[in-house]
Lab assay of single mutants.
Amino acid sequence: QVATSTVRILGMTCQSCVKSIEDRISNLKGIISMKVSLEQGSATVKYVPSVVCLQQVCHQIGDMGFEASIAE
């Protein structure tokens, strides 16, 4: 089973930030795809909930120095 959710990301300033986040999160087990939008300050994450949760994704992004939260 696959889920798609949006994560809000604060602190991104350039495409390099976007690429860094996409590269790191895409390597997590259970992540199918991730598309980060600098303009919208968010990311669309396609993932397998039984393998990885959005809290883990937000935590990983937080470790990179950005502020991440699950969009309502």
Results as ranks from 00 to 15, higher is better:
51 V>N: 02
38 L>G: 00
35 K>Y: 07
35 K>D: 07
32 I>D: 01
33 S>K: 08
65 G>K: 01
63 D>S: 11
41 G>Q: 15
29 K>W: 11
36 V>W: 00
64 M>F: 04
51 V>A: 06
13 T>W: 15
48 V>E: 15
72 E>I: 09
20 S>Y: 07
5 S>Q: 08
52 V>N: 00
31 I>K: 00
68 A>G: 04
55 Q>A: 11
7 V>R: 00
59 H>I: 14
69 S>K: 09
62 G>Q: 15
30 G>H: 04
62 G>C: 13
6 T>K: 09
7 V>C: 10
16 S>C: 05
30 G>D: 03
37 S>E: 06
34 M>Y: 00
22 E>D: 01
67 E>H: 12
21 I>Q: 00
19 K>L: 09
65 G>H: 03
11 G>S: 00
31 I>Y: 00
52 V>T: 05
13 T>K: 14
64 M>D: 02
13 T>Q: 07
42 S>A: 11
31 I>F: 03
23 D>H: 13
31 I>P: 00
24 R>H: 11
71 A>E: 12
43 A>G: 14
59 H>G: 12
24 R>F: 07
31 I>R: 00
53 C>R: 11
12 M>P: 04
38 L>F: 11
18 V>N: 01
22 E>T: 09
14 C>Q: 02
66 F>E: 02
16 S>F: 08
55 Q>V: 11
44 T>S: 11
56 Q>V: 10
10 L>E: 10
63 D>L: 15
28 L>D: 01
55 Q>R: 10
31 I>H: 01
17 C>A: 06
71 A>I: 14
53 C>W: 08
40 Q>T: 12
67 E>A: 10
66 F>I: 03
31 I>E: 01
52 V>H: 00
56 Q>E: 14
42 S>T: 14
69 S>W: 13
35 K>M: 08
4 T>I: 13
29 K>F: 13
63 D>M: 15
35 K>N: 08
46 K>M: 15
21 I>A: 01
11 G>K: 01
71 A>M: 12
72 E>G: 10
27 N>F: 09
14 C>P: 01
60 Q>G: 04
26 S>K: 10
68 A>D: 03
8 R>E: 07
33 S>L: 07
44 T>D: 05
61 I>N: 02
50 S>V: 05
68 A>K: 03
67 E>G: 07
46 K>C: 15
23 D>L: 12
71 A>C: 12
30 G>M: 09
61 I>M: 04
24 R>D: 03
5 S>W: 05
36 V>N: 00
69 S>F: 13
27 N>S: 13
42 S>I: 13
19 K>I: 12
25 I>H: 01
44 T>G: 04
47 Y>R: 00
44 T>H: 08
50 S>W: 07
8 R>Q: 10
33 S>N: 07
31 I>T: 01
